[in-house]
């Protein structure tokens, strides 16, 4: 695509200069290869090579002890992954975290977008305040959340107790650590979903809503049968962005629990990090990474296909 755009631009540039047809054709040919070359090189160096190398690594047994001559073991790493209970548990946790965070963030983002789609006094200020979590550094934010959620002297439990509610263990319990992390992620990223949906809302045409209002449709009806279907492509894009991010969440988990208590918040990314950089089982970590990469890729492909369908339907 980039090729043809660049080619066309050059074409018009050259024809404006009224050059000969043959040199024009040659110029177009060279340009169609030359101009995208930097982009192709960047993609090759930054993407194709690392991915290819990871796949190559995943077929070897590589550790600090045989770095000079890694042993080719075919698909043994993948076979071991099939039997690895810690890997399976990490996979489940990743799915749980992603689904939980997505559901909350889209619901909240939509709600907030509806709110800010109305005009009210101080809307700009409130909207800016709502966007603040998004710009916080995840690691710094993790440390602050740990202070807030500390079960002995944190503010969160103090508030609960003042309201007459029982104190919670938050991050300090295997049962509540993932829901708590989902809440933290939701706090930070719902504003992004809100921003995207709000942009979608402002772009919607007014006529259908006016027509619906004349026909006596209730607020709920015009939301459910007009706005929501028209917003679906936007929501799909938000879902895609957030699902990829949620699947590979690392910072807030590492910043708070490092995958703990025990393995209770060890998602795929955490497990792969440990396998690679703590245990130095580089080949095995690469195999897990290839599986993870495939997973992220298929989820995004699935969402792209779904989005095309909704667009086609609309």
């Amino acid at each position: 695509m980039a090729q043809s755009v660049f080619g066309r631009q050059l074409n018009s540039f050259i024809s404006a200069r009224r050059l000969k047809t043959s040199s024009l054709r040659r110029g177009r040919l060279i340009a169609s290869w030359l101009f995208p070359l930097p982009a192709i090189l960047v993609v090759a160096v930054m993407l194709a090579y690392p991915v290819g190398y990871t796949v190559w690594l995943s077929l070897h047994d590589l550790s600090p002890f045989n770095l000079e001559n890694p042993e080719w073991i075919g698909t043994e790493n993948y076979a071991a992954l099939l039997k690895d209970t810690r890997f399976h548990a990490a996979l489940e946790r990743t799915a749980y975290f992603t689904l939980g965070a997505l559901a909350l963030q889209v619901a909240l983002g939509l709600g907030m977008a509806l709110l800010f789609n109305h005009n009210f006094v101080g809307r700009g200020v409130v909207r800016t305040l709502f966007l603040l979590p998004m710009v916080a550094t995840p690691v710094a934010m993790s440390l602050i959340w740990m202070l807030i959620l500390n079960p002995v002297d944190g503010v969160a439990n103090w508030i609960l107790e003042t309201l007459g509610l029982p104190p919670q263990l938050w991050l300090n319990s295997a049962d509540s650590v993932l829901p708590t992390l989902i809440l933290m992620d939701t706090w930070q990223w719902s504003p992004l979903v809100m921003l995207m949906i709000l942009a979608g809302m402002t772009a919607l045409p007014h006529e259908p809503f006016e027509a619906a209002a004349i026909d006596g449709a209730s607020w709920w009806q015009s939301f459910r049968f007009l706005m929501l279907p028209m917003l679906r492509p936007t929501i799909m894009v938000a879902l895609m962005f957030r699902s990829i991010d949620c699947l590979k969440t690392f910072d807030i988990i590492y910043g708070t629990t490092q995958g703990g208590p025990g393995f209770a918040s060890e998602t795929l990314n955490l497990y792969i990090y440990k396998t690679g950089f703590d245990y130095f089982r580089l080949g095995y970590a690469a195999a897990a990474l290839v599986v993870f990469f495939t997973l992220v890729l298929s989820v995004s492909l699935l969402l792209i296909i779904l989005r095309r369908r909704t667009e086609a339907a609309a």
């Binding site: 500390n150 079960p151 002995v152 104190p167 263990l169 938050w170 991050l171 300090n172 319990s173 295997a174 629990t257 703990g260 208590p261 025990g262």
Partner: peptide, 21 residues
Amino acid sequence: GPPGAVNNSWPENVQLFTSGK
């Protein structure tokens, strides 16, 4: 022990003990 001790290591414990808890 303190609630949520499953996340406590040296930094948390030194904080608890030196603050007389």
